[in-house]
Design a protein around this nucleic acid. Structure first.
Lengths: 130, 130
DNA sequence: AATTAAACGCAACAATGTTGCAATTGATAA
DNA sequence: TTATCAATTGCAACATTGTTGCGTTTAATT
């Protein structure tokens, strides 16, 4: 039975997530914390938050990795089957909580997790008429 | 007007792809080529092959990046909208050419590309009764 | 206040990808 | 066939991202 502690660094990371509407990379979090804690500590906090189902990890098409808060509002059983949108212009990644792909799999596969990421232009950048 | 050359290294990389049924990482290709050429050269060849639409890049959930041949057989306009399957046991990544997700997007987004990766157990590992 | 496992900082390392530059080479024209 | 020259390569050096070990600090409990 591991107990998990609410350390200053963890609280600070959580606050960064609260304030952000988009997903954040490790580097972005590190900058926002402004040397409040070590780089390694942030990696370890992110790991813990993922285990606690507070945030989830998003792998982007270009290989970058970001993290975003989980939305537990509606489901009892929490599954990350929503889509993510990656803007090619501003590079922000947002969760599309309500977009859930439907698909037909061949037999003999057991699907445990899905990752559905769309990229293009987000509403902001689309309106800015790039 | 750049012309692109069929060098020995590029041909060797292409042959590795021909022989493989699954997607390959840079490291896997490097090992199979057995020091035929430099690490950097492989990165540059992969870049060229992507530009030439011969291969495509796949970002995996765990952050690893792989490459696979494109299948041009059916479409005139070539879009990478098929799904990929990533096996949690053997870590092989295969293209599911016929699996195409359907989904409904909110307005004001312009979708240019999609990445649909499923992970779980592939038929091989499922049958091996892990 | 004492205890103690969780969390931390630091240093070192590993993996992956990029860049600049001089040398080499494939494709083309002479 | 040979000369030409831009595309390609090898090498060295660097950047970024993520991991590990270990001694020290700290949050939560008694």
């Amino acid at each position: 039975m591991k107990t998990t502690r609410n350390t200053a660094a963890k609280m600070a990371v959580l606050e960064v997530f609260e304030k952000s509407k988009t997903a954040l990379s490790h580097t972005e979090i590190h900058k926002q914390l402004n040397d409040l804690c070590d780089r390694v500590t942030i990696y370890r906090i992110l790991d813990r938050l993922i285990n606690e189902d507070v945030i989830h990890k998003i792998s982007n098409l270009d290989g970058t990795v970001k993290y975003a808060k989980c939305n537990h509002s509606h489901q009892r059983v929490h599954i990350h089957n929503h889509a993510h949108f990656s803007c090619e212009n501003c590079h922000e990644i947002t969760c599309l909580e309500n977009v859930k792909p439907s698909y037909i799999m061949p037999h003999n596969y057991k699907v445990n997790e899905i990752n559905f990421t769309l990229s293009g232009l987000c509403p902001n950048c689309l309106n800015s008429n790039i």
